[in-house]
Amino acid sequence: LGYSVIGFEASQEIDGVSSQIYHTNVMMHVGTDLAVVCLDSIPKASERRMVQESLTKSGKKLIPITAKQKFNFAGNMLEVSNDGGEKFTVMSQAALDALNVGQIQQIEKYTTIISPTIPTIEKLGGGSARCMIAEIFLPMG
Rank of each mutant, 00 (worst) to 15 (best):
L1C: 08
L1Y: 14
L1I: 09
G2Y: 15
G2A: 12
G2H: 10
G2M: 10
Y3F: 14
Y3K: 12
V5T: 14
V5H: 09
V5P: 08
I6Q: 11
I6E: 13
G7N: 12
E9P: 02
A10V: 02
S11C: 11
Q12V: 13
Q12A: 10
Q12Y: 05
Q12P: 01
I14F: 11
D15E: 14
G16Y: 08
G16A: 08
S18Y: 11
S18A: 11
Q20V: 11
I21V: 15
I21P: 05
H23I: 06
T24F: 08
N25W: 13
V26I: 15
V26H: 05
V26P: 03
H29V: 01
H29R: 03
V30P: 08
V30N: 10
G31Y: 03
L34D: 06
L34V: 10
L34I: 11
V36G: 00
V36A: 02
V37F: 06
V37L: 07
C38I: 00
D40S: 14
S41M: 02
I42S: 04
P43R: 03
A45F: 01
S46P: 00
R48L: 05
R48D: 01
R48N: 05
R49V: 11
R49L: 12
R49D: 14
V51G: 04
V51Q: 04
Q52F: 01
E53M: 03
S54L: 06
L55M: 13
L55V: 10
K60Y: 07
K61H: 07
L62R: 00
I63Y: 02
I65M: 07
I65R: 04
T66A: 07
K68I: 11
K70M: 15
K70N: 11
F71G: 00
G75P: 05
L78Q: 09
L78G: 03
E79L: 07
E79W: 08
E79V: 07
V80C: 09
V80I: 15
V80R: 06
N82H: 03
E86F: 04
K87M: 12
V90C: 13
V90F: 09
M91S: 00
A94Q: 13
A94S: 14
A95M: 04
A95Q: 04
A95F: 00
L96V: 02
L96K: 14
D97Q: 12
A98V: 01
N100H: 12
N100L: 09
V101A: 14
G102I: 06
G102W: 06
I104N: 05
I104H: 06
Q105L: 12
Q105F: 05
Q105C: 07
Q106M: 11
I107E: 02
E108P: 08
K109R: 13
K109C: 10
T111A: 10
T111F: 07
T111Q: 14
T112C: 09
I114R: 11
S115G: 08
S115T: 07
S115V: 08
P119A: 02
P119S: 00
I121L: 14
E122M: 03
K123A: 13
K123R: 12
K123V: 01
L124N: 02
G125S: 01
G125Q: 05
G126K: 02
G126L: 01
G126W: 00
G127R: 04
S128L: 02
S128T: 05
S128P: 00
R130M: 07
C131A: 08
M132Y: 04
M132I: 10
M132D: 03
A134P: 07
A134N: 12
I136F: 13
L138A: 15
L138M: 15
P139H: 10
P139E: 13
M140C: 11
